[in-house]
C-alpha cells in the first residue's frame, strides 16, 4: 500500500541526484543522532534556509526513530537532488519490519501503537515538501521525503 503524491517511480521529473548518496544504518539509538547530523550537513549544502533545515532534520529524526523502534532497524539513504530549478535534500528510510497495517490510521495526528505522541509520520509529512510512504508485511516500510530550497 502506498501513500504520497509521487507514485512508485519516485516522481521521475522531480529530481536527479546531485552528488553521491550516503547510506547509513539505523540499528542503535546513536544512529538516530548521526542521521540528524548527516541530514543537517546535506540541508546546508543544498542551501536550505535555517528554518527549512530545522524542519527537514526534525522530520528525519522522527522517521529514523520509527525505523529503529517499529521497523526493528534499517537504513537511510540521503542525497542532494536537483530538479533543474532548485536543489533539495532527499532521505529514504527503509526497513524490513512488520509494515504498517493501516496507513491512514498511522498518518493520523496523535495515533500511536506504542507510547509515542503519534506525531512522527503525520508531523514529518507536514514538515517536508514531498512525502511518500510504502508499506507491506512482506517488504517492510519505506518512507521517502524531500525538502526543496526556496
Amino acid at each position: 500500500m502506498t501513500i504520497g503524491g509521487l507514485g512508485p517511480q519516485g516522481g521521475g521529473a522531480a529530481s536527479s541526484s546531485a552528488g553521491s548518496p550516503q547510506r547509513h544504518a539505523i540499528v542503535v539509538e546513536s544512529d538516530v543522532v548521526r542521521v540528524r547530523q548527516v541530514v543537517r550537513s546535506a540541508a546546508v549544502a543544498a542551501r536550505l534556509s535555517l528554518v527549512d533545515q530545522t524542519k527537514m532534520v526534525t522530520a528525519a529524526s522522527e522517521l529514523a526513530r520509527n525505523t529503529l523502534v517499529y521497523g526493528g532497524g534499517g537504513a537511510v539513504t540521503i542525497d542532494i537532488v536537483d530538479n533543474g530549478r532548485r536543489r533539495g535534500v532527499r532521505a529514504v528510510f527503509t526497513d524490513s519490519g512488520p509494515g504498517i497495517a493501516d496507513l491512514d490510521l498511522a498518518l493520523t495526528d496523535g495515533w500511536t501503537s506504542g507510547s509515542g505522541l503519534g506525531l512522527g509520520l503525520s508531523g514529518s509529512r507536514r514538515l517536508v515538501d514531498e512525502f511518500e510512504l510504502e508499506s507491506s508485511p512482506e517488504t517492510g516500510t519505506t518512507v521517502r521525503v524531500v525538502k526543496w530550497s526556496r
Binding site: T54, T58, L119, S124, R126, L127
Partner: peptide
Amino acid sequence: PAVAITLVELGL
C-alpha cells in the same frame, strides 16, 4: 525561533 516554528508545524 526555527525550533518554535518547526514544533508548531509538527503539531506539538
